[in-house]
Simulated assay, not measured.
Amino acid sequence: MKQRLAVIDFETTGITPGVGCRATEIGIVLLEGGQIVDRYQSLMNAGVRVPPMIEQLTGISNAMLRSAPPVAQVMREAADFVGSAPLVAHNASFDSKFWDYELAQLGRTRPQAFACTLLLSRRLLPQAPDHKLGTLTRWAGLPATGRAHRALADAEMAANLLLHLGTTLRQQHGRGAVDHGLLCKLQKVPAAKVPQYLRELPA
């Protein structure tokens, strides 16, 4: 994957963005030429409380958020950092909701699509014990990047997984060029039909 891609991860106070559920941290990794070339990470204060269960999971406390920069500032920086680069996330249906919601608070919209390493791993790594990010990282022998459920560590894990999926496509399916467009198409193909789909694609 030679093109520049932005791999993102949010930590949040819940699962559906809204008045009482907001992002608390974002991590972004830029990939280019098959390697990480830049990173962005910040806590963000959206004026919502972190439930005890979420604090225990992420380690992000209400005290930490009180001194964090305002959400609008962080999201402007994050959107400018990503620019027009195609987006990637593990379980992108989750992260894309928060990305879109927080951008909408700034009057901005997302022009680019998300590729999802969760959907892609289900199709390309069906033999994995499960398709959680931590499980896949350990199973595939990918680098440990830090504490799980912190945004930058998870974004780096997803970036390493994406590179592994690219290697799988090249080595097991003979794909010379792997780009974001192919990944977005592939994640919509039923898992059982993926080998045939890849065989029938032009080389």
Results as ranks from 00 to 15, higher is better:
residue 1 M to Y: 06
residue 3 Q to R: 11
residue 8 I to M: 13
residue 8 I to D: 12
residue 8 I to F: 11
residue 11 E to A: 07
residue 18 G to L: 13
residue 19 V to T: 15
residue 21 C to Y: 01
residue 21 C to T: 13
residue 26 I to G: 07
residue 27 G to L: 09
residue 27 G to N: 06
residue 28 I to G: 01
residue 32 E to N: 08
residue 34 G to A: 10
residue 35 Q to D: 05
residue 36 I to P: 11
residue 37 V to M: 01
residue 39 R to G: 05
residue 39 R to A: 10
residue 39 R to D: 13
residue 39 R to N: 14
residue 42 S to L: 09
residue 43 L to G: 00
residue 45 N to R: 10
residue 48 V to S: 06
residue 50 V to W: 11
residue 52 P to S: 03
residue 54 I to R: 04
residue 56 Q to K: 03
residue 56 Q to M: 01
residue 57 L to E: 10
residue 59 G to A: 04
residue 64 M to F: 03
residue 65 L to S: 06
residue 69 P to W: 06
residue 71 V to M: 12
residue 74 V to Q: 08
residue 74 V to C: 06
residue 75 M to Y: 11
residue 77 E to K: 12
residue 78 A to F: 07
residue 79 A to L: 11
residue 81 F to W: 12
residue 83 G to H: 08
residue 84 S to I: 12
residue 86 P to R: 01
residue 86 P to G: 04
residue 88 V to S: 07
residue 90 H to D: 11
residue 90 H to P: 09
residue 91 N to K: 01
residue 95 D to Y: 03
residue 97 K to T: 15
residue 102 E to K: 01
residue 104 A to R: 12
residue 104 A to D: 14
residue 105 Q to A: 15
residue 107 G to R: 14
residue 109 T to K: 15
residue 110 R to D: 15
residue 112 Q to D: 10
residue 115 A to Y: 03
residue 121 S to P: 00
residue 121 S to C: 02
residue 124 L to S: 12
residue 126 P to H: 06
residue 128 A to M: 11
residue 128 A to K: 02
residue 130 D to Q: 04
residue 131 H to A: 06
residue 133 L to M: 03
residue 133 L to Y: 05
residue 134 G to P: 00
residue 135 T to N: 04
residue 135 T to L: 09
residue 139 W to H: 01
residue 139 W to C: 01
residue 139 W to L: 08
residue 141 G to R: 09
residue 142 L to N: 09
residue 145 T to A: 08
residue 146 G to L: 10
residue 147 R to K: 13
residue 151 A to L: 03
residue 154 D to R: 02
residue 157 M to E: 00
residue 158 A to K: 06
residue 158 A to M: 07
residue 159 A to I: 02
residue 159 A to S: 10
residue 163 L to Y: 06
residue 164 H to R: 13
residue 166 G to V: 02
residue 170 R to K: 14
residue 172 Q to S: 11
residue 174 G to D: 11
residue 175 R to S: 08
residue 180 H to F: 05
residue 181 G to Y: 04
residue 184 C to I: 10
residue 185 K to T: 13
residue 185 K to W: 05
residue 185 K to C: 13
residue 187 Q to H: 01
residue 187 Q to M: 11
residue 188 K to A: 15
residue 192 A to S: 11
residue 195 P to C: 03
residue 196 Q to N: 12
residue 198 L to H: 06
residue 199 R to T: 13
residue 200 E to W: 02
residue 201 L to P: 12
residue 203 A to S: 15
